[in-house]
Amino acid sequence: MAFAVARGGRLDVIVNNAGVGPISRFDALRVDDWDAMIDVNFRGTLYGIAAALPVFARQDSGHVVNVISTAGLQIVPTMGVYAATKNAVRTATEVLRQEAGPKLRVTEVSPGVIATSFGDTITHQPTRKMLEERLGNIAISPDAVARGILYALEQPPEVDVGSIVIRPTAQS
């Protein structure tokens, strides 16, 4: 945050977008993968918020965008821990919005199947293969998510876009 402020003179927005998804069924007992998802997906978002809030408070303005996932909206097998971390971020985002006051905007963005390297973090090979076969052909470009975030950012200061879901039309 200090680098951004030093370079640009202020901080207008933070987009918390880090995430890993080494998903698997619970009975695969991949506890290290669970820890990784909790650390990156949930704690990473909290650390980003903690770094940005003091800057936003000094400026009396700012915008927090937390990228979540449709996996937290439509719960399916293999996504238990991943969805739980994303729903923890969803809960934290809503509480932050309520605590923010009139000068801080807070937006949650829930992407569906996006053409990224997300699948590379899946360490359980049967789950990885199943998802690639089932969802790989419907993934949409990451720029769709970027356009959704830009929509929220471009609104006037008194307008807070609370939640955006962006997914392929073919995604159930």
Results as ranks from 00 to 15, higher is better:
V5W: 05
H124S: 01
V20Q: 02
V109R: 05
L11Y: 06
D35E: 12
T116H: 06
I68D: 07
G8K: 09
A170C: 03
V165P: 00
V76Q: 15
I140G: 05
F56I: 02
A144W: 13
V5Y: 06
A18N: 03
G62M: 13
M37S: 01
V161C: 01
R58S: 11
H124W: 13
N41S: 04
V165G: 00
R147T: 02
I49F: 10
R7I: 00
D160R: 14
M79G: 05
A170Y: 10
N66W: 13
N87D: 14
T45L: 13
D143L: 08
R105I: 01
K86Y: 03
Q59V: 13
D27C: 07
M79R: 14
A28T: 06
T70Y: 08
I23D: 09
A18R: 07
V5I: 06
A115H: 08
D39Q: 14
S61V: 00
F118T: 05
I75M: 13
M130F: 15
P54C: 11
A52H: 10
A28P: 00
F3P: 00
R43Y: 10
G9P: 06
K86H: 05
G44Q: 07
V40S: 07
A152I: 02
R7P: 00
N41I: 05
A170D: 13
P157G: 01
I38P: 00
Q155R: 15
A139P: 05
D33Y: 03
S141G: 03
F118M: 15
A52G: 07
N66A: 05
L29N: 12
I75P: 07
M37F: 04
A144H: 15
S163R: 15
G162V: 11
D160Q: 15
V76G: 10
A28S: 10
I68C: 03
E99D: 14
N41Q: 08
R147Y: 09
D160F: 08
V5N: 06
E99V: 09
V55E: 13
D12P: 01
A139Q: 15
I164E: 04
D120L: 15
P77Y: 10
V161D: 03
V31L: 14
A28I: 04
L135R: 10
V15P: 02
L46Y: 10
Q155L: 09
V165K: 03
I122D: 04
S110E: 14
Y82G: 01
E133W: 08
I14D: 03
T93S: 12
V81I: 14
V76N: 14
V13C: 15
V31M: 12
L46N: 02
R43F: 11
A88N: 01
L150V: 13
Y82I: 06
K103R: 15
N137M: 09
D27M: 13
E132V: 00
V15L: 04
I164D: 04
L96M: 06
Q125D: 11
A50F: 08
V161E: 03
V113C: 02
V65Y: 08
L53E: 04
R25D: 14
I140W: 08
L53A: 09
A36L: 12
L104Q: 02
T127E: 01
A6W: 01
V13G: 07
F26Y: 10
V31Y: 12
I114K: 07
P126Y: 03
A36G: 03
V145L: 07
G72F: 08
G48F: 04
G80Q: 09
R43V: 10
V20D: 00
